[in-house]
Simulated scan of single mutants.
Amino acid sequence: MPIVVDIDVMLARRKMPVGVLAERIGITPANLAVLKNGRAKAVRFTTLESLCEVLECQPGDLLRWVPESADSADRVHQAQA
């Protein structure tokens, strides 16, 4: 998938558990897991705004575009890490 979700990166930087983030932004941990694992088909701007507010970041810190061919290499690299 060409859009990579880096919520885990921001959670690590903020030293915040997933459950705390889910509670603060007002979604279930299951829905947050769908989003952070890149399985979501869409994200509401209100959810993105809440994520940015709680994590004190910009949307570009959470979402990035990776060309399709590079995406496969990125997944391999992440699996090896």
Rank of each mutant, 00 (worst) to 15 (best):
M1P: 09
M1F: 07
P2D: 13
P2I: 08
P2V: 02
I3C: 03
I3Y: 15
V5L: 06
V5M: 01
D6L: 05
I7V: 10
I7P: 00
I7S: 00
I7D: 00
D8A: 06
D8F: 03
D8L: 04
M10D: 05
M10H: 04
L11Q: 02
A12M: 07
R14C: 08
M16R: 00
M16N: 01
P17G: 13
P17R: 14
V18I: 10
V18P: 08
L21R: 02
L21G: 04
L21V: 04
L21A: 01
E23S: 06
G26T: 05
G26W: 04
I27G: 01
I27K: 01
T28Y: 07
A30P: 09
A30N: 11
A30I: 09
A30K: 09
A30D: 09
N31E: 15
A33I: 08
V34Q: 12
V34L: 10
V34F: 11
L35S: 02
K36F: 13
K36Q: 15
N37T: 13
G38V: 02
G38E: 08
A40G: 03
A40R: 02
K41C: 14
K41G: 13
K41F: 09
A42I: 08
A42K: 12
A42G: 11
V43I: 15
R44Y: 14
F45P: 07
F45T: 08
F45K: 07
F45N: 09
F45V: 08
T46Q: 14
T46C: 12
T46F: 14
T46A: 14
T47Q: 11
T47K: 07
T47H: 06
T47A: 03
T47R: 06
L48Y: 01
S50I: 02
L51R: 01
L51V: 02
C52N: 00
E53K: 11
E53D: 14
V54A: 01
V54I: 05
L55F: 03
E56L: 10
E56W: 06
E56I: 05
C57S: 04
C57K: 04
Q58I: 13
P59M: 00
P59Q: 00
G60K: 04
L63F: 13
R64C: 02
R64F: 01
W65K: 08
P67G: 09
P67S: 04
P67V: 01
E68L: 07
S69A: 09
D71F: 15
S72H: 15
A73L: 09
A73H: 05
D74A: 12
D74T: 15
R75W: 07
R75A: 03
V76D: 02
V76H: 02
V76L: 05
H77W: 14
Q78N: 07
Q78G: 04
A79M: 07
A79Y: 03
A79G: 05
A81V: 11
A81D: 12
A81Q: 13
A81H: 15
A81S: 11
